[in-house]
Design a protein around this nucleic acid. Structure first.
Lengths: 366, 366
DNA sequence: TTTTATTGTGTGTACGCACACATTTTTGTT
DNA sequence: AACAAAAATGTGTGCGTACACACAATAAAA
């Protein structure tokens, strides 16, 4: 096939009757160029349809961008946070040759101290950019203030801090996701039913996110005139440990035996599913996140729907966004909502496989 | 931040006390290298954790890969085939600097001749690789035979030809997608109901895909013991023109007034939805593909579920696969099923936005 | 008029790698 | 021992761009 020869700076220079230096000056708006020559160069660029070769540019520049990712550690293999991490790794591998290097700093989901400690490390290091899951509100605000001081751009993933002055937020629209949960749960219930929204927390302050979730969830029933037929309960359990959850949920079910559908606001729906199985309860269940435990319960029918917030994409997109910002100086969208995938037993495998496959790329890079 | 200095071939050479030429020979298994030196070099590579810089490699090699995409033309802006095209363009932009160039050849969805004509052009050109939507079975087989003759690798997207000897198939698992359609439709219907599967064709031979679809769709009801309560009808309409579809569907509904749910096997569910609206029929509807017309009917509630087969991803992945194959000589998976996204009114926007956003990258490249 | 800024333009080197070619070392033959 | 052939290793150039530097032409100041 006849190869469309690449148009280089040289070609443009020849065509415009100037040196490559002048081309360079025009492209980068640096130095002084006489109006006539500038005009000629611009015309030549247009005419020859010149596109700078990004490879050569990156090679010549040779600059390195260090990004630090501050995310929760994944205590076990199938854990939720393995997925954003995976996305971060994939994208880093992809851009490695452009000089992107990512270092990972993990904090304990239930220990603010660990967050503070790791954040301090990052602040001291002074990377080019930061990817941050701001699950501790106060500590995150403190950290980002320091980053702003040092003019280090940062991106939020998974959770947002409104007016957090981040370069971008990449994550779910939590309110809408709960709205969807409402719709999915409702679609499986009879005309009249009681519904429970279960919230398991263990210290950390996701209060605002939780509020928006409840808003979204109830919103569905309100907007669709279901306030009368469906009663929405809400239960907060101050733990994610199985025993305690079981104890609390038992208590609640005994008091409210008419519950026919449950919405779990985090990735621990499998716990509730286990409980239902154990006690042979026929209760519809909707939860979040395609973690291993949930996958199992989707398979066995204990969980009906899982809403997945594209965790891998979140990681990928975060690095991509920083890359575009650093290398191409592209100002990103302030809010980048990710797709809210609706997962059922039947389409489960495609989501699992498609992401797994992607990982191959990483091998090339270590 | 202390920058982890890049390890180059030079570093390795110095460390191993040989010249860069020898390093090169070891890496590429070319030329003669004495066993001792090879050993030393390998150790040095290991020790220093050397990774060749792909940018520099691509720059030095300077080779071009031309890929031809043979896909249906999109007759209007919101048409299905704008989306795979979009994915192809995005990925091509991404890899442009590595020497990937894609040319597009469009054929008329309802005109085998146009396919043959375009295929001939491609065959004559002799590109490095081909991305192909093999919607005409016979013609595609003929075309791929010619490609094999010329040792040109090709990838199927959107539709597969079993034993088609393609480098890879990237697209939906159609049987499973219909199974999912069954589940979704059933979830909205009362205990007893009649269901219609509508197939609109206009000449081209997707017979095998259609068979697998019906298998999958009926499969859901069989596997879940619903053969008794749900009656599955099937209707084939030899057109996608509104008037004819309306005429046929009217006829069918009059004969079968108990239909409560419809599954449309292509992206034309909006036609049926229009019909339902027009005649004020309360019939649940499930279809394929997030095309503009379907989006509108999802919004107004005429369509309940749309199953989307990640059309943009398909295009992206096709180029990515060829890229990996050409540049990194990575043998791809023979079958790459894409996620089957379940779209409802409530999560619609996230899918639309997320893809739209991606397009920014392209601007950089033309 | 000469000197000194100022502005405009061209040249050369580096980036990390691949590859052709030059050079050295080893082996085999008589 | 001499020499050719073969094997092993080293050197140099180019890929397309960025950028520091050198230099020329003009304008301003002495």
């Amino acid at each position: 096939m006849e190869r469309t020869k690449k148009v280089t700076i040289q070609d443009v220079a020849r065509y415009a009757n100037v040196s490559v230096g002048t081309i360079d000056r025009v492209i980068h708006h640096r130095g002084k160029v006489s109006p006539e020559k500038r005009k000629k160069v611009e015309e030549a660029i247009e005419k020859l349809n010149f596109n700078p070769n990004m490879l050569a540019r990156a090679l010549a520049l040779g600059n390195q961008f260090t990004v630090c990712a501050l995310i929760p550690s994944a205590p076990y293999p199938g854990h939720y946070w393995t997925m954003p991490l995976n996305g971060l790794e994939m994208a880093t591998a992809q851009f490695k040759d452009y000089g992107i290097i990512t270092s990972y700093y993990y904090y304990d989901l239930f220990d603010e101290k660990s967050f503070i400690k790791q954040a301090a490390k990052i602040a001291e290091l002074g990377p080019s950019g930061v990817v941050l899951a701001p699950l501790f509100l106060r500590e995150s605000k403190h950290f980002t203030a320091k980053l702003r001081e040092k003019s280090i751009p940062y991106i939020f993933i998974d959770a947002d801090i409104p007016h957090g002055q981040s370069l971008s937020y990449i994550g779910p629209d939590v309110k809408q996701s709960a709205y969807i949960a409402g719709r999915l749960l409702n679609s499986m219930l009879p005309e009249k039913a009681e519904i429970l929204m279960v919230n398991m927390v263990k210290g950390f302050e996701n209060a605002s996110a939780l509020r928006r979730m409840e808003e979204g969830f109830r919103g569905y029933f309100n907007k669709n005139g279901l306030e009368e037929s469906k009663t929405i309960h809400a239960l907060t359990i101050q733990s994610t440990r199985k025993e305690e959850v079981f104890r609390e949920i038992t208590k609640y079910y005994i008091k409210n035996p008419e519950i026919k559908g449950v919405f779990v606001t985090n990735s621990k729906a499998f716990l509730i599913s286990e409980f239902h199985r154990k006690h042979d309860l026929d209760i519809r269940l909707v939860g979040y996140d395609l973690v291993e435990a949930n996958i199992a319960h989707l398979r066995n029918g204990g969980i009906d729907f899982v809403i997945s917030q594209s965790p891998v994409q979140q990681g990928k997109r975060a690095i991509q966004t920083l890359f575009d910002f650093f290398v191409w100086k592209k100002e990103p969208e302030k809010i980048q909502y990710v797709p809210l995938d609706i997962i059922i037993r039947e389409n489960l495998d495609f989501y699992i496989n498609f992401n797994r496959h992607n990982q191959n790329g990483i091998k090339n890079n270590q």
